Amino acid sequence: TRRLSELRVIDLRAELKKRNLDTGGNKSVLMERLKKAVKEEGQD
C-alpha cells in the first residue's frame, strides 16, 4: 500500500468515498480523515 502522503487528492477522495466518508476539504483534511478511518478499521 502506498503511503497516504503519496496519494493525490483525487485518490484520497476515492478512498473516502469507498468508505462512505465525507470527501470535502483540502488535502490535509482528507488525509487526516482517511488516516483516522484506516486506524479504526485496523482495530476491528
Results as ranks from 00 to 15, higher is better:
T1L: 13
T1R: 08
T1E: 15
R2M: 14
R2A: 11
R2C: 08
R3Y: 05
R3K: 13
R3N: 14
L4F: 08
L4A: 08
L4W: 01
L4P: 05
L4T: 07
S5R: 08
E6G: 12
E6N: 15
E6R: 05
E6Q: 12
E6C: 07
L7H: 04
L7E: 13
L7K: 07
L7Y: 07
R8I: 01
R8Q: 14
R8P: 14
R8H: 10
R8N: 04
R8L: 04
V9W: 01
V9L: 06
V9K: 03
V9E: 15
I10G: 15
I10L: 12
I10S: 15
I10E: 15
I10W: 10
D11V: 02
D11P: 04
L12N: 04
L12R: 01
L12P: 02
L12Q: 05
R13P: 00
A14R: 06
A14L: 08
E15P: 00
L16N: 02
L16Q: 00
L16A: 07
L16R: 01
K17E: 13
K17C: 08
K17P: 04
K18W: 04
K18Q: 12
K18T: 07
K18P: 04
K18N: 08
R19N: 00
R19D: 03
R19Y: 02
R19E: 05
N20D: 12
N20V: 03
N20S: 12
N20Q: 14
N20W: 00
N20T: 05
N20C: 02
L21R: 03
L21V: 02
L21C: 07
L21T: 05
L21W: 01
L21M: 09
L21I: 03
D22Q: 07
D22A: 11
D22E: 06
D22N: 00
T23M: 02
T23C: 09
T23H: 02
T23N: 00
T23V: 10
G24Y: 09
G24V: 14
G24R: 15
G25S: 02
G25R: 01
G25V: 01
G25Y: 00
N26F: 01
N26R: 09
N26V: 12
N26H: 01
K27I: 03
K27G: 04
K27L: 07
S28M: 11
S28A: 13
S28L: 11
S28H: 10
S28D: 12
S28V: 11
S28E: 13
S28I: 14
S28K: 15
S28T: 15
S28Q: 15
V29R: 07
V29S: 04
V29G: 05
V29W: 00
V29Y: 02
V29P: 02
L30I: 11
L30N: 00
L30K: 03
L30C: 05
L30Y: 00
M31L: 13
M31K: 04
M31D: 01
E32K: 05
E32R: 09
R33E: 08
R33H: 04
R33N: 02
R33K: 05
R33I: 00
L34V: 06
L34D: 14
L34C: 01
K35D: 13
K35C: 08
K35H: 12
K35N: 14
K35V: 13
K35E: 15
K35I: 15
K36D: 12
K36F: 06
K36E: 14
K36H: 13
K36W: 06
K36Q: 12
A37F: 02
A37S: 06
A37M: 02
A37Y: 10
A37T: 05
V38I: 08
V38F: 07
V38R: 11
V38L: 14
V38D: 09
V38K: 14
K39I: 09
K39A: 11
K39D: 15
K39W: 08
K39S: 13
E40C: 11
E40L: 09
E40G: 12
E40T: 08
E40H: 10
E41V: 07
E41C: 05
E41S: 09
E41M: 03
E41W: 00
E41T: 06
G42F: 04
G42Q: 13
G42Y: 00
G42M: 07
Q43C: 08
Q43L: 12
Q43H: 11
Q43D: 04
Q43T: 09
D44F: 05
D44A: 15
D44K: 07
D44G: 14
D44W: 03
